[in-house]
Design a protein around this nucleic acid. Structure first.
Length: 699
DNA sequence: GAGCACTGC
């Protein structure tokens, strides 16, 4: 094996770590940082005083890198070298090097806030800025002050602005390690194409005809585009004169592809054959495709974002950042010198693309993260002043506080309640945690566990119903239960109960057009939730289906009431004259039930007067996804609570802001700056979206 | 009457 670049820096790294609590290590792809850093520290004896932890943003990475290191050290995986991911703890008493997902480390710090088990914590791939990594960065900053003598923290990253992280950690040293990438020639288009799909198609064919062998990786934004481009490529390639160029295979690659289709990209191309891989940004970081020499970059990505002022999610096509563009280009230089075709001019790269991707923490609902931080007994810390590398907007934090207050996780002063502490122990979004606790009190825990687990798996549950596939399908899927007309939560419950009755049969899933993967995940989640609930309540639980019959006879009333308590911040009231709804809360939003919902109207054609919704999504219009009928009497206490809500008090009363019921804001420091930053970002995103839509309609 | 990128506890 060739010597990895990082090993030439062993002395320097050790010396720096010796004299500093925090060190930033910048190492490009191929530097060996993920596998070697912990071994360097191990050789120096850091594993004698504790375990060396290495966090990864993804499960597969944690497992595969752990396996590699165990091989290199010639030990059995799970002994000296192990890993910990959700549902799987492969460590033992012997373990000295432990790979784990950042989410697992956060969970661990819930039971041991000082993480005393560890002598070194390495936050790997920090440049990806996952929500969990960002929270860990803040926690590490505190932790090195609490454990100055016996904890070392290393933050490693490929392209992260080392200066910024260094400043965050009181100007800690930065060690830069070169990577092992081959040079990649960048070729820009002279202008933005009217259709990047057409442009990708032509560029790819051009490469195929003119350039020597090597696979082509094409970045598109979504499944739909990928399928279109794959078809067109196949069509054009067939028309090429036989013998005029080498053979070709076209492969789609995206997240909702079944795993057996995804792994096809790992088998190399046959002799004298070029592969075209048409992928989403799953190929940017999550999956590495070997053999790629040419990259075609559209410059766009689909990104989900949360708007705290409306509580709505949207999935938008936005420009990638320069960091992302470079990451994409790097995919061409893994095995030999490559080429990257950017379907936009260099002026756009330098002047219009944002330098870095907006970190996830600034694009997500923060209820879960805020509850987590509050449960960590950070008594000296006001959540609005928690030290984030890039702080979320004040609006976003206040939105989280309001949600938490309405579901009893924090009191009117913003302090965590006993209920909130218990909620934080559950690996669920706060609304579902609250639902479980309420369900436990009113005797429908078993059902609530199922609903929570099903909703956790929701995206992997249903098959992707692209029209093309529907025609291809040989069998018409069997009909699913209808939720007794009460809504989608009830339907999810009924689906699981039927599957349970069918003995968790995989063919049952396929007959009903449900993804086996998603249903198995649901089963795992439910099992984990049962275990945690048992620990919380310190006793046997009613988690079997014994009460199901009785419950369904009375219209799942207890379950729906528990949902109402858990989703107190996600209620909507029907309009008087039609079946539109307005959300109940600070800023009422006019929304509709998503057409995929199984919620039914009564004999007069009216939908229920009150519903809870799982989420608001803005697509062509604002929709409530996953709704469940509730009763007016249950809503009343929540309305009362809403009236008493005072955001100023919730956020610790550290400023003089008052937000009144109708959303009027008076005298809010920093508010303007935050709003401006948000507006700037929103308008940029909006502009990108408009450009994209304009192109789409032209076609 | 719509349509969904990618992760994770």
């Amino acid at each position: 094996m060739a010597i990895l670049p990082i090993l030439q820096f062993e002395e320097k790294i050790l010396e720096t770590v010796e004299h500093n609590s925090v060190v930033v290590v910048i190492g490009e792809t191929g530097s060996g940082k993920s596998t070697q850093l912990c071994q360097i520290l191990h050789r120096k004896g850091f594993t004698k005083s504790g375990v060396v932890a290495v966090t990864q943003p993804r499960r597969v990475a944690a497992v595969s890198v752990a396996r590699r290191v165990a091989q290199e050290l010639r030990v059995r995986l799970g002994e000296e070298v192990g890993y910990g991911i959700r549902f799987e703890d492969r460590t033992s008493e012997k373990t000295r090097i432990k790979y784990l997902t950042d989410g697992v480390l956060l969970r661990e710090s819930l039971s041991d806030p000082e993480l005393n088990n560890y002598s070194v914590i390495i936050l790997d791939e920090a440049h990806e800025r996952s929500l969990n990594t960002d929270i860990l960065l803040g926690l590490m900053k505190r932790l090195v002050k609490i454990r100055p003598s016996n904890l070392k923290v290393l933050v490693t990253s490929a392209t992260l602005d080392g200066g910024k992280v260094s400043r965050f950690f009181s100007n800690c040293p930065v060690v830069t390690v070169p990577g092992k990438l081959f040079p990649v020639e960048i070729l820009y288009s002279s202008e933005r194409p009217t259709s990047y799909l057409e442009s990708s198609l032509n560029t790819a064919l051009d490469i195929h005809v003119r350039e020597p062998e090597g696979d082509i990786l094409i970045f598109m934004t979504g499944q739909d585009e990928i399928e279109k481009l794959v078809l067109k490529l196949e069509e054009k390639i067939q028309r090429l004169e036989e013998g005029s160029c080498m053979d070709a295979i076209v492969l789609p690659l995206h997240g909702s592809l079944p795993p057996e289709m995804q792994v096809r990209v790992f088998s190399p191309a046959p002799q004298n054959c070029r592969r075209f891989i048409v992928a989403t940004n799953i190929a940017e970081t999550s999956l590495t495709v070997d053999g790629v020499v040419y990259v075609i970059d559209s410059g766009y990505v689909k990104q989900r974002q949360y708007n705290p002022s409306t509580g709505m999610y949207s999935l938008d096509v936005v420009c990638i950042s320069r960091v992302q563009a470079d990451q994409r280009a790097g995919r061409a230089g893994r095995t030999r010198p490559g080429k990257c075709y950017r379907l936009y001019p260099s002026t756009i790269y330098w002047e219009e693309l944002p330098e870095v991707t907006v970190p996830e923490i600034q694009r997500s609902s923060l209820a879960g993260s805020v509850l987590y931080l509050k449960s960590l007994a950070l008594l000296d810390v006001d959540i609005l002043k928690f030290d984030f590398l890039d702080p979320p907007s004040r609006e976003s934090l206040e939105d989280a506080l309001k949600q938490l207050y309405l579901i009893d996780a924090i009191d009117e002063n913003g302090s965590i309640t006993q209920v909130g502490r218990t909620m934080a122990e559950l690996p669920l979004e706060p609304s579902l945690s609250r639902t479980l606790l309420e369900a436990n009190d009113c005797g429908c825990l078993s059902q609530a566990l199922t609903v929570a687990a099903m909703l956790s798996a929701e995206t992997t549950l249903l098959p992707n119903q692209s029209k093309r596939h529907e025609k291809k399908r040989k069998h018409v899927p069997l009909e699913l239960p209808d939720g007794s007309g009460l809504g989608d939560h009830i339907q999810l419950l009924q689906i699981y109960e039927h599957w349970d009755k069918a003995g968790y049969d995989t063919s049952w899933c396929m007959d009903h057009a449900l993804q086996v993967r998603g249903m198995m995940f649901t089963k795992d989640v439910r099992k984990q939730l049962v275990q945690i609930m048992q620990k919380i309540t310190k006793g046997p639980l009613d988690v079997k289906r014994s009460r199901g019959r009785k419950q369904s006879q009375q219209g799942y009333k207890n379950l729906r009431r528990a949902l109402c308590v858990g989703f107190a911040s996600q209620l909507a009231e029907r309009m008087i004259h039609h079946n539109g709804y307005r959300t109940i809360g600070f800023k009422a939003q006019l929304v509709q039930v998503h057409p995929s919902s199984v919620l039914k109207t009564d004999e007069d054609g009216r939908l229920p007067e009150f519903v809870v919704y799982h989420e608001l999504v803005a697509t062509t219009r604002p929709f409530m996804r996953n709704v469940c009928a509730i009763e007016q009497a249950w809503v009343m206490p929540i309305l009362k609570k809403l009236n008493q809500l005072n955001v100023n008090k919730l956020s610790g009363g550290t400023n003089s802001a008052e937000i009144t019921m109708d959303g009027q804001v008076t005298d809010l420091p920093n508010k303007d700056a935050d709003t401006k930053a948000n507006n700037d970002r929103d308008s940029k995103i909006q502009a990108a979206r408009e450009r994209y839509l304009a192109r789409k309609t032209k076609k």
